[in-house]
Write a protein that binds this DNA or RNA. Structure first.
Lengths: 221, 221
DNA sequence: CGATTGATGCGACGTTCGTCGCGTTAGTGA
DNA sequence: TCACTAACGCGACGAACGTCGCATCAATCG
């Protein structure tokens, strides 16, 4: 889901320096440091995962002094939060094929692929791990996922417009039903995620929506 | 889901000393140390969470020397693994009311309650966090969840026997659809989990199963 | 261009982590 | 009861972590 973000290079982060200190002096050096540190954070996550993410290594890699990193971001959790908040600004759009099932399948595939390729070496994985022990990261993750959910909801709304699903279908719930089993297998039950599993998850969500099981007033079932 | 385990006292662990070293000398002292250390691990998890779980504190609390804990369990991840493996032996049974929806609702409620009461202070939460960075814990968690799934499948099989759902319903998939959204909200999207959410998850799973959306051959959808 | 001052670089410090070698304790079996 | 030895207790050690005070740098503004 955030896979493409890791491919992002130096200049990519340069453009979104929302992490400037007080805001009183967003000068060139500060922005440069922010870019270098966040990029180093992503690189370190890609190489050693969240478990091996160290302020000292990030500082050395970025060329920014260790004390500065501690002052600006507070620690490892702050680094993950900042990287995650930045990625929220990164535009993302779901693929729209004109068929709800296919759209949901693409969504599930995106999730699975992002984690399957490099387990524990992804920003998303790091965020989930860090959010468990850090309220700051938890809030950043919540905001990130809310953004993704809002964007993904489009595929359901279009399906409703086409008449595939009832008008009062809960778009967010459809997305949840489609992707939740994937995350569940990855992080909770620790079962392998096959292509058939992804198809089943998407099929269940699409069929349930089509039959009116996921409408907004169905909530009090 | 593993909430009740934390209530377990000293003697409870004493009875399952599967963690003896080579097996050549499962004597009284070794078993006593195992019990003390695992109990201290659960206590520390309850007080400080996984993030604050330290070998040094566990050693001090249990009265066992730090070096011994490192030798026997290797570190924090080993402690979590051992605690989790032990809890697999702990018998657990799903509530059976004679109605699939209600049974699934109870299941979802158990999951939600286990995490809602004391976030990040549960063995399950610690396991999920630790499994991300530790292959050992990941395997222990997989085995634990496989056991829980096998036990929970009974409610679906009985529903099939009653004729509520088709004979070839995939029991495991029904359970996944029922609980996955709960875990998803808790750890991924970080949304609050309300009673209505639990009802909706259980209702969706039960209805989808009743309509034949979760049969074994539906997989290739 | 020069003064201001927020941000940074720097090095040192106390703390905690994880490991190691060695002497001792206490289950085990004769 | 007694020897054997696996497991343990103990203290010390190097390494890494996170923090601090102070000197320096550079972005901003007059």
């Amino acid at each position: 889901m955030t896979r493409a973000i890791l491919k992002c290079n130096y200049s990519c982060i340069m453009t979104s320096n929302t992490q400037t200190p007080g805001g009183s002096r967003p000068g060139g050096r500060t922005a440069r440091n922010t870019a270098a540190v966040l990029q180093a954070t992503l690189d370190e996550l890609g190489e050693h995962g969240y478990h091996g993410l160290t302020v000292e290594r990030v500082a050395t890699r970025s060329g920014v002094h260790k004390a500065t990193v501690y002052r600006r971001w507070g620690g490892v959790d702050g680094l993950v939060s900042a990287a995650l908040e930045w990625s929220t600004a990164h535009a993302w759009e779901p693929t729209r094929t004109g068929d709800l099932y296919t759209d949901l399948l693409r969504l599930a595939e995106t999730v699975a692929r992002g984690f399957a390729d490099a387990p524990e070496s992804d920003l998303s994985t790091a965020s989930i791990a860090a959010a468990i022990s850090s309220a700051t990261v938890a809030e950043a993750l919540r905001a990130f996922m809310a953004d993704r959910h809002a964007r993904a909801a489009v595929v359901v709304e279009e399906a409703a417009a086409r008449g595939e699903v009832p008008e009062d279908t809960d778009a967010h719930e459809v997305v949840r039903v489609a992707v939740a089993p994937v995350y569940y297998r990855l992080f909770v039950s620790r079962e392998p995620v096959t292509a058939a599993d992804l198809r089943r998850a998407a099929r269940t969500a699409a069929d349930a929506a089509a039959r009116g099981l996921l409408t907004t007033d169905h909530r009090t079932g």
